[in-house]
Design a protein around this nucleic acid. Structure first.
Lengths: 118, 118
DNA sequence: AACATATATGAAATAGGTTTCATATGAATA
DNA sequence: TATTCATATGAAACCTATTTCATATATGTT
């Protein structure tokens, strides 16, 4: 796919957005992001916090890391993941604000998008 | 899924983010957004601009509309779609900036995420 | 070196969003 | 009101990211 001609950044194309947002369009990854927003954690701590199987967390983290949404530092045998807050936190705040303004009628919540809530 | 306890907005949960970002994690929808960023358009104009089949555009628009990412006004037999710029444009700018800072090494582009580029 | 803890990796199966294509609906006009 | 233009809708097929599960690797400890 060609470079996108409509944005500020020559390094970014439609597909770049796709990759980036694919990471955010995922409840588990959002869970990880929100968990790391509070405090950096190693994998085991994330597993405990979210009560999700370890390899699932690892797969998700690797994907998040690829886009620099999270970063990692080694500490002994533990790997501490931490959020790159510069981008994500403002984005989440924009969504929060958007939902507050537009989605009080539940337009963006599970029930309206698919009837089979459960 | 329960309300998310980590954000500002009682109307928003993990799934809300998911719904919202699913709309952005799609090249066609990003294409529509970028097209509408320049100028509001009816469906036929979007079809011409993006050279994509009409029902595909309609499906995408309905999905975008559900999250108030776009809105619509009727004008004769045409339906003019326009971008809710308050949320999307700042988000795209944040991504642009993010990519500029972090993705010069192509971390977020097609080739690195999947080897089979084409 | 053997072991335990911590995390990453691979691949097949799965799930859920997107595409396709046929068709229905809505608005305007002759 | 018959016709045309404009757009929406439904459902099956398709595609691709996620999940699952077995296993590999890496680091520290005894």
């Amino acid at each position: 796919m060609n470079k996108c001609t409509c944005n500020l950044n020559p390094y970014l194309n439609h597909y770049s957005y796709h990759i980036f947002f694919t990471n955010l369009a995922n409840e588990l990854k959002i869970g990880i992001i929100l968990s790391l927003r509070k405090k950096e954690k190693n994998v085991t701590e994330i597993v405990k916090d979210l009560k999700v199987e370890q390899s699932k967390i690892s797969h998700a983290l690797i994907s998040l890391k690829k886009c620099n949404i999270v970063n990692v530092k080694q500490k002994g045998k533990k790997r501490i993941y931490f959020l790159n807050k510069d981008t994500i936190v403002p984005i989440l705040e924009l969504i929060d604000k958007h939902a507050f303004t537009h989605c009080k009628n539940k337009c963006c919540v599970k029930e309206n998008n698919k009837e089979k809530s459960k």
